[in-house]
Design a protein around this nucleic acid. Structure first.
Lengths: 203, 203
DNA sequence: CTTCATTATGTCAGTTCTTACATAGTTGGA
DNA sequence: TCCAACTATGTAAGAACTGACATAATGAAG
């Protein structure tokens, strides 16, 4: 309605990811990038170049502010803080239902085209994927155990967010491990279909 | 080796998605777009504008060719076919291990920041998401049942690809439904923590 | 008869994101 | 002592993708 305060929230999803991290702890751009590589925040990643770009955009939108702190390096480092305006925008964004995501997954795409390729080579690819997912799963299980050790997750504390995201990650990796194993089983059957009658057909 | 045939495979993932569809059936650009909206091929989507752009790129790379066919419309429609070169490139791409995907998921990001927001509003958002995933799951289960009806999935036939991708979709939607329910349970507990001992913990 | 959905092609502006380039101090090991 | 890794900032070119614009025939419903 009011033409002055344009509510054209031009903040991108990455912008909100940055705000979500700053709401937990003040950070430099570099720290934000490394915190995003952390598996707990595994669901959104960005290169440092884009983080710097977005921080500048958030700055001009007055969503964040920064204090200069010395070194190490030629320039001062900039420790960013979320502003009240940024926290308001973040809070509003959190409960806005996201549009259904387009599910872009290269491995599934490859499986869809798998009938054209060499089964042995496919098996190697899925074995690699399986190992990756098993490692991630183990990592998440360790993180989950260490989160459950302390006090129960209180809503209103960052720990709640950690558990929520981690719980999703656990379920996702379990599903992936299962799927990769199923694929490997199907592919091995196509290589030696001899034991067709012997197999008990359940797992 | 040979400097003339530059193996700089500049084909994007979308390009291979298009090739994978054309390997199953010749299609116009419009048909490719609608086939990508089909839930069986739910793992990669694109707007028609980008499909047209990529088809032109694939054409100049001689990965596809087309025959003109009449109407309906002002121009002839172009029925695209995958070429031998395109099929070779596709086959090579299928077994190349994809880099670990960055897992960009807005809903998980929101859950990570959920501790800052209103639990009631969050519950509504997760209820919406739950319904979407339940619907998808039902859709996939129907598709799976109709795939199992016929002959068993033979490797070397497109049906194998359908089952592979669908199996992944089923596992994913189940995991999502489970996670959304867990989130709703956690959020409802934070709203009335009184019945901590009373509730039977299942639904 | 008009209107609307579907089939069908394409361009263009703008956003998001990746990759490479560019700089520079500190710290720790070989 | 030198070299590599880490901390720290940023720019710029280009790829990937979205959404709006633009055109136009067919067929079905009202």
């Amino acid at each position: 309605m009011s033409s002055t305060t344009s509510t054209t929230s031009t903040t991108s999803t990455l912008g909100f990811a940055i705000l979500a991290l700053l709401a937990r702890a003040d950070s430099t751009g570099y720290e934000i990038a490394s915190r995003m590589r952390n598996p707990v925040a595994y669901f959104w990643t960005a290169s440092h170049s884009q983080i710097h770009t977005d921080l500048q955009r958030l700055l001009s939108a007055q969503m964040v502010a920064y204090d200069r702190a010395p070194g190490p390096g030629p320039q001062d480092k900039k420790v960013y803080t979320i502003t009240a305006k940024g926290r308001d925008a973040l809070r509003e964004w959190i409960t806005t239902p996201p549009r259904p995501q387009p599910e872009r997954d290269e491995l599934v795409l490859k499986s869809y085209a798998a009938w054209l390729a060499d089964p042995a080579a496919l098996m190697e690819m899925f074995r690699t994927a399986l190992h990756r997912h098993e490692e991630r799963l183990a990592e998440y299980e360790r993180a989950w155990a260490s989160l459950e050790e302390g006090a129960p997750p209180l809503f209103g504390t960052p720990k709640f967010g950690n558990m929520a995201a981690l719980r999703c990650g656990l379920g996702y990796e379990r599903h992936r491990v299962e799927w990769c194993r199923w694929m490997l089983d199907q592919l091995s059957r196509s290589l030696n279909p001899s034991c067709e009658a012997a197999k008990p057909n359940d797992e």
